[in-house]
Nucleic acid binder design. Structure first.
Length: 623
DNA sequence: CCTAAGGATCCCGACAGTCG
DNA sequence: CGACTGTCGGGATCCTTAGG
C-alpha cells in the first residue's frame, strides 16, 4: 500500500492517520531491512539448492527459482529511470546528487530481461564454482552462460544430459512469485524508478522464501515487538485452540487444498464453514466518545521527568548536562563535552567551556565525563522507569541513546528504563483551544469569573440535517452554566496586526464599525456577520461570540441568532444547490457543455421570483 | 545552526471514458 | 482507432515547529 491507501485503510479502522512523509521515512527504514533480509534468504535458498545437487533453474523476469526448493535464489531489478535523478536534472540541483539512485540500466527495454538473465546466471556460476575452487571449471561455465540463456546447452558441463535439461521443472513457483510481486507492486501503479519498487520486490521475495515470518524478523531488527501483543491475545483463546488450533487449522487447510487440486472442486469446500463465531475474529472496538480523556496506562512504572542540555541541535551533539526528577529525588550533573559548545547553545544554557573547565554563567561548575555521568544516571534511575520529557522523541532520546550506545551502556540502561514519553505529543492531544488561541489571559480570567464553569472546546465540521447542503466549522464552542452553549468565531486581522481596533474601525472596509454610542459592533452587512449567523443556524444555537484580536486590542461581541436572516440564507443556499451545484455534480452540466444555457430553477418557482426581485441585494449577500 | 514530522501542494504516469 | 480529457495515486518539495 502507498500513502493514500494506507491513510484510507487506517481511516476505515478509526485509527489516526499517518502523514505521507512519515510513512515514506518508515518505508525507507523498513525497506532497507527487507532488501537485506531478501538477499540473505536468497543466499540461504541458494545453499539449500546447492546441497540438493541440482542446477536447473528457471529465469523469470528478474528472479531465479530453484527447481527443487521452489524458492527464490536470486533477484535483480533493472531500471532505466530514477525519479530522484529526473528531479535533479529538471531542477539542476547539485546538492541532491548523492542519493539512493535506482537507475542501473541504459539498454533497450527488450534487451532488459535477457540482460538480467545473463547477469544472474553469471552470479550463479560463480557461486557454484567458488565453493569448489576450480578456476578452469568456472571459466568454462562462464563461457557457457550466453549460449545457455539462448537455448544452446552444448557448452554446459552440468547440462550434458539433454533429458535432464528438458525437465525445467514446474513454472508454478515462478508464477506464484510473480503473483506476489504483482500484488505488492501492481503494474497499474507507476513504481518505475522509485525506491519503493525495490522494497516491494524484496518483500515479495522474502515472503516467497520464508513466508510471512519475514515480517517478524524485520520487526525484530527494528526493535518492534508486536508478537508480545499476539501472545497476550493468544492467552485469551480457549486452551484446545491455543495448544493445537493453529497446527490443526494449517494441516486441515493443506489437506483441503490438496483435495481441491486432485478433485478439481475449488469453490464449495469452505464456503459454508463459517457458521459459528470464529475465535480468530475479534471485533474492532468502537471509537471512544469525543469527550473521553486519553489516559496513559503506565501500569507499575516509575515516572521520571528528564531533560538534557547539549552543545547544539544536531543529532551528533554532545551532552553538557543531564537533569532528572523522580518524586522528591533529583539528579543533576554537568558533563564535559568533547566538542565545542555552539554560541547559540551557550545563550540558552549559560554553559561555556575553556580548556578542561566548564563554566555556567561564568562560574566554574563540577563536571564528569560522559561515561561516568551516564553510569551514575543508570544507578540513580528507579526500576521500571519511564522517562518523560518535551520533544524527547525527536531530540533528547536520540542524543542519550547515541551516548549510551557509544559508551556501551545501552543494555544497562534498558534494564532500568521501560521507555520514554514525549510530552509534546501528549500536549497536542490534551491542549484545549483556549491555550492555543491568542486571547489575553486577564480577559479570559475575567470571563471565567463572570461565567460559571466556563469551557472552550475545539470542534469540527457541523451539518444540520434540515439543510444538509450547508456546513459550518466554528472556531470553537463555549459552554457555561449561566448562558448554555454558544459558537465562537475568532478573527486575527493580519493587516491590522499592530493597530488598536479603534483605529482599525476608521478603515471603511473594516468589519467592526462604531455605533451611535461609540461602541464597536460587527457590521451586519459584512460577510462575517452572515458567517456567524450561518454557524448559529447550523449548530442550532441562540447566540455566539465574535472575537477580534490584534496585538493591542481584543474585542468580544455577543451575536444573537437572527431567524429572518437564517431563513434567507437557507432559501438562497437551497436555490444555489438545486440550480447550480446539483446539476454539475450529477451531470457536469456547466463544465462539460459550455454552450448550454444555465438551468431554470424548476423545483421552487417562488425562490425564482424572489431571486429576480431582489437580485442586487442578493448578489451582495451571496458573496 | 540540525532533524523529523505533518500539512499543503504540485507534478507525472496509468487508466478509463468520450468523441470525431 | 487515435487524440484528448478527467481521475486517481505515488513521489517529491516547501513551510512550519519543537528541542539547545
Amino acid at each position: 500500500m502507498g500513502p493514500v491507501q494506507t491513510v484510507n485503510f487506517v481511516t476505515a479502522l478509526n485509527v489516526p492517520c499517518i502523514s505521507p512523509n512519515n510513512l515514506k521515512s518508515r518505508e525507507r527504514e523498513i525497506g532497507k531491512t527487507i532488501e537485506e533480509y531478501a538477499l540473505t534468504s536468497c543466499k540461504k535458498a541458494l545453499e539449500e539448492e546447492y546441497l540438493m545437487n541440482s542446477y536447473n533453474f528457471i529465469p523469470g523476469h528478474a528472479t531465479v527459482i530453484g527447481n527443487l526448493s521452489g524458492k527464490c535464489l536470486h533477484f535483480r531489478l533493472k531500471s532505466t529511470d530514477c525519479r530522484k535523478c529526473n528531479y535533479i536534472d529538471e531542477k539542476d540541483d547539485a546538492s541532491e546528487k548523492d542519493h539512493d539512485c535506482r537507475r542501473n540500466y541504459s539498454g533497450s527495454s527488450n534487451a532488459m530481461e535477457p540482460a538480467l538473465a545473463v547477469e544472474m546466471d553469471m552470479l550463479y556460476a560463480i557461486k557454484q564454482n567458488t565453493s569448489k575452487g576450480d578456476i578452469e571449471n568456472l571459466k568454462s561455465t562462464i563461457d557457457a552462460i550466453v549460449p545457455h540463456a539462448f537455448g544452446d546447452y552444448s557448452l554446459c558441463s552440468s547440462c550434458e544430459n539433454t533429458n535432464k535439461l528438458a525437465n525445467l521443472g514446474s513454472s508454478q513457483s515462478n508464477e506464484s512469485l510473480n503473483f506476489v510481486i504483482s500484488t505488492k507492486a501492481p503494474k497499474s501503479k507507476h513504481f518505475g524508478g522509485s525506491q519503493s519498487l525495490g522494497y516491494r520486490v524484496a518483500s515479495a521475495v522474502s515472503q516467497k522464501n520464508d513466508g510471512r515470518n519475514y515480517v517478524v524478523e524485520v520487526n525484530k531488527t527494528h526493535r518492534l515487538y508486536p508478537e508480545s501483543e499476539r501472545e497476550k491475545r493468544q492467552k485469551l483463546l480457549p486452551q484446545h485452540i491455543r495448544e493445537n488450533g493453529g497446527t490443526k487449522k494449517g494441516s486441515r487447510l493443506r489437506s483441503v487444498r490438496s483435495k481441491e487440486i486432485r478433485e478439481g472442486d475449488s469453490y464449495t469446500s469452505a464456503i459454508s464453514s463459517i457458521e459459528e463465531e470464529s475465535p480468530y475474529i475479534e471485533e474492532i472496538p468502537s471509537r471512544p466518545a469525543e469527550n473521553d480523556n486519553i489516559n496513559l496506562h503506565l501500569g507499575n512504572t516509575a515516572t521520571v521527568f528528564f531533560d538534557l542540555e547539549t552543545t547544539g541541535l544536531g543529532i551528533s551533539c554532545d551532552i553538557t548536562q543531564i537533569a532528572a526528577v523522580f518524586g522528591t529525588n533529583k539528579f543533576s550533573q554537568y558533563v564535559m563535552p568533547l566538542q565545542p559548545i555552539t554560541i547559540a547553545a551557550s545563550k540558552v544554557t549559560g554553559l561555556t567551556r575553556f580548556g578542561n573547565v566548564l563554566y555556567r554563567n561564568g562560574i566554574p561548575v563540577p563536571h564528569q565525563n560522559s561515561k561516568e555521568c551516564l553510569k551514575e544516571l543508570i544507578t540513580w534511575l528507579p526500576e521500571n522507569a519511564v522517562l518523560f520529557g518535551h520533544n524527547v522523541k525527536s531530540f533528547d532520546a536520540k542524543i542519550i541513546i547515541k551516548a549510551l550506545t557509544d559508551e556501551n551502556l545501552i543494555n544497562d540502561f534498558e534494564s532500568k528504563c521501560n521507555g520514554v514519553v514525549d510530552t509534546l505529543h501528549v500536549l497536542e492531544l490534551h491542549t484545549p483551544i483556549e491555550t492555543c488561541c491568542p486571547a489575553d489571559q486577564p480577559e479570559l480570567d475575567k470571563l471565567r469569573k463572570e461565567h460559571e464553569n466556563l469551557k472552550v472546546e475545539e470542534v469540527g465540521f457541523f451539518i444540520n440535517p434540515n439543510v444538509p447542503f450547508i456546513g459550518a466549522s466554528p472556531d470553537g464552542i463555549v459552554t457555561c452554566d449561566c448562558c448554555g452553549q454558544a459558537v465562537v468565531e475568532i478573527k486575527c486581522p493580519f493587516c491590522k496586526k499592530h493597530d488598536s481596533l479603534e483605529n482599525a474601525s476608521d478603515d471603511k472596509n473594516f468589519y467592526l464599525k462604531k455605533d451611535n454610542d461609540g461602541n464597536l459592533k460587527l457590521y451586519t452587512k459584512h460577510m462575517y456577520y452572515y458567517q456567524v449567523q450561518t454557524q448559529l443556524g447550523i449548530c442550532q444555537m441562540e447566540s455566539g461570540y465574535f472575537v477580534v484580536w490584534t496585538e493591542k486590542d481584543l474585542h468580544i461581541e455577543q451575536i444573537v441568532f437572527n431567524n429572518e436572516l437564517w431563513k434567507e440564507i437557507c432559501d438562497k443556499s437551497k436555490h444555489l444547490f438545486i440550480t447550480a451545484i446539483l446539476p454539475e455534480l450529477i451531470g457536469k452540466f456547466y463544465s462539460r457543455l459550455p454552450n448550454r444555457q444555465p438551468l431554470k430553477p424548476v423545483v421552487n418557482n417562488y425562490l425564482c421570483e424572489k431571486e429576480s426581485k431582489s437580485k442586487d441585494n442578493n448578489e451582495q449577500n451571496t458573496e
